Simulated assay, not measured.
Amino acid sequence: MLEIACGTGRVSIPIARLGFSVTGLDIVPGMIERARSKSVGLPTRWIVGDARAFDLGEQFRLIFLTGNAFQAFLTNADQEALLQRVYAHLHDEGLFAFETRNPIFPRSQTPDGLFVPLETNEEEQDWSPFIDTSGREVRVSRTYVYDHVAQIHHWTTYKRWYEGGKEHTKITRTALRYTFPQELAALLYYNGFSIERQYGNWDLEPLTADSPSIISVCCKRD
């Protein structure tokens, strides 16, 4: 099986411990090195590569993405390039499974703090602080801007802590593409896939307007 955007192997390594051979692909070399160091002696293979352009010269019975990695493919061209590579590497009787957050608008019923509605709020909102590995309390706040045309949610996260009598701030920026259910169905269809099953969460409940996720299990279309 093949995991795309595998990161440090958080999902692939437990699968390998069950005796399955797993190939992990990620564009970040440091992630792959960490995965390799965590999986010595397991039936794993780790590859640095771009999910939009890789060619492993083989096919897999199962290809999957987790952690909403599909949302990192920000443009239509990015999404289609990914799906074309998946199609080329998927066995004719194989399955392709992935998740993406369900687009949720203001006033939807959502778990607090988990799935921010698609809106803009440029005033910093406080999130739960945490204690880092050095024992410092780190305060967290975020702003977010939703681009309705590009369907991209831009997050800016601020982490602040005191050290040496001074306040320090680390700023990170994240962009997430949101794809609507019918848009996703068309995208998959025109790239050669049929949706076999679709769920709204990891309890395998049906997809609804209030579901936090769109989890799709696909096969090659006849």
Rank of each mutant, 00 (worst) to 15 (best):
R61P: 10
E122N: 02
D78K: 08
T120Y: 01
Q79M: 00
R107T: 13
A88Y: 15
Y87L: 11
L95T: 13
D78C: 07
S134M: 07
W127M: 10
T66G: 11
V145L: 03
E123D: 05
P111K: 13
S141M: 07
D92R: 11
P103S: 15
E119K: 09
V86T: 07
F96H: 11
L65N: 03
A97D: 04
Q125G: 09
P111R: 10
E80R: 13
Y87E: 12
E122Y: 02
D92M: 07
H91I: 09
E99Q: 11
L118C: 07
A72S: 10
L82K: 03
R136N: 05
G135Y: 12
G67K: 04
A97M: 14
N76W: 12
F96P: 11
R136G: 04
N121W: 07
F96A: 12
E124R: 15
L95Y: 12
N121H: 06
L114G: 01
S128N: 10
R85K: 02
T66A: 13
R139V: 02
N76G: 12
R107Q: 14
N102I: 07
D92C: 08
F64H: 11
E124Y: 10
P106H: 05
L65E: 06
R136P: 01
S108T: 13
L83S: 03
R85V: 00
P129S: 08
R136L: 05
F96Q: 12
V86I: 14
S141V: 06
S108H: 15
F70M: 13
E99M: 05
F105Y: 14
G113D: 11
E122K: 02
G67E: 08
A88P: 12
Y87W: 15
E119I: 05
F73I: 02
E124D: 12
N121P: 02
E93S: 14
E119M: 12
Q125N: 06
S134H: 11
A97I: 14
L90F: 14
D126G: 06
G94A: 01
D132Q: 01
V145C: 04
E80P: 01
A81P: 03
F70R: 08
P111N: 09
N121A: 04
L118V: 02
V116K: 10
I104Q: 15
L114H: 05
R61E: 14
Q125H: 07
D78Q: 05
S128M: 08
L95E: 12
T75C: 03
R101K: 14
V116A: 08
E123P: 00
R101T: 02
H89D: 10
Y144V: 00
E80D: 10
T66F: 07
T66N: 11
